[in-house]
Amino acid sequence: MEDAVRMETVSKVYGRGRGAVAALREVTTAIPRGRFTAVMGPSGSGKSTFLHCAAGLDTPTAGTVRLGDTELSAMNETKLTELRRRRVGFVFQAFNLVPSLTVEQNITLPLRLSRTRVDKAWLAEVVARVGLADRTGHRPAQLSGGQQQRVAIARALVTRPDVVFGDEPTGALDTMTARDVLTLLRETVDGMDQTVVMVTHDPVAASYADTVLFLADGQIVDWLDAPSSDAVAARMTRLGAWK
């Protein structure tokens, strides 16, 4: 299976000397294309750093990161910004919508920033898939939290990215709304052949993924395929996440 992301002996150290903190320690992994991968671990395990390095938001101290066939470590910040706009989608815990823009304008913002023509047919399909066809003229303040996160997911999908990265995308949502958003992410993988990588602390959220990677002390220490929430919770307990 083709890799969407490949990390080879990636380390990330913040600070210098005695104050240096190793957030990632020689991480090597491959994330397959067209699959849903969740990343879990105790607080301070390196989850967010893993996502930031994989997505080109942060540069590793050592090692290489590839998005498809493109090596990110050789790119300057301008090139990385261009790559992220064209080939990477992001969904964060905070919806990060522009209050003055309509739903449609928020969704198409990455295209406008990269001066890319809006494909109206693709936009309509994305809007329909996230269930917002009757909300395109609304402003974010007129939407529920779940609807705002759906706008963020549509914005992530509209560029047809190689990978959608989610950093606790359901963290600000109630249980029922979170389930709807996770179902939507699952459907983008199954119905649109999208690749999704999601950092989460929630075993139920992780159970929507095809594979869960477990991090501890900046290293991948285990993985679980076809995860159930109970199996994920049990493994997290052994990692010391809930002591």
Score class of each variant (00 low, 15 high):
Ser11Val: 05
Lys12Asp: 07
Tyr14Ser: 05
Gly15Glu: 11
Arg25Val: 13
Thr29Val: 15
Ala30Lys: 14
Ala30Trp: 04
Pro32Trp: 05
Arg33Gln: 14
Gly34Ile: 04
Gly34Met: 12
Phe36Ser: 10
Phe36His: 07
Val39Glu: 07
Met40Lys: 11
Met40Thr: 00
Gly41Leu: 09
Pro42Leu: 11
Gly46Asp: 01
Ser48Val: 05
Ala54Ile: 07
Ala55Glu: 00
Leu57Arg: 01
Ala62Ile: 01
Gly63Arg: 06
Arg66Asn: 12
Gly68Ala: 00
Asp69Glu: 15
Glu71Asp: 13
Glu71Lys: 07
Glu77Ser: 05
Lys79Gly: 10
Thr81Asn: 13
Val88Phe: 09
Val88Tyr: 06
Gly89Leu: 09
Val91Arg: 04
Phe92Asn: 05
Val98Leu: 14
Pro99Ser: 06
Glu104Ser: 12
Gln105Tyr: 03
Leu109Arg: 08
Leu113Met: 12
Leu113Phe: 12
Leu113Asp: 08
Arg117Trp: 05
Lys120Leu: 14
Trp122Asp: 13
Arg129Cys: 01
Leu132Pro: 04
Ala133Val: 12
Thr136Pro: 11
Thr136Asp: 02
Pro140Gly: 06
Gly146Pro: 10
Gln147Asp: 00
Val151His: 03
Ala154Met: 04
Ala156Gln: 02
Arg160Cys: 10
Arg160Asp: 11
Val163Thr: 10
Glu168Ile: 00
Thr170Glu: 07
Thr175Asp: 03
Thr175Asn: 11
Thr175Tyr: 11
Thr177Leu: 10
Leu182Gln: 10
Thr188Phe: 13
Thr188His: 03
Thr188Gln: 05
Asp190Ile: 13
Met192Glu: 14
Asp193Gln: 14
Thr195Lys: 06
Val196Gly: 03
Val196Gln: 05
Val197Pro: 03
Met198Trp: 04
Met198Lys: 03
His201Glu: 04
Pro203Tyr: 07
Pro203Trp: 02
Val204Ile: 15
Ala205Ile: 07
Ala206Lys: 06
Ser207Tyr: 10
Tyr208His: 09
Gln219Gly: 15
Ile220Cys: 02
Val221Lys: 02
Asp222Met: 11
Leu224Val: 12
Ala226Cys: 13
Ser229Phe: 01
Ser229Ile: 03
Ala231Cys: 05
Val232Lys: 02
Leu239Glu: 03
Ala241Gln: 04
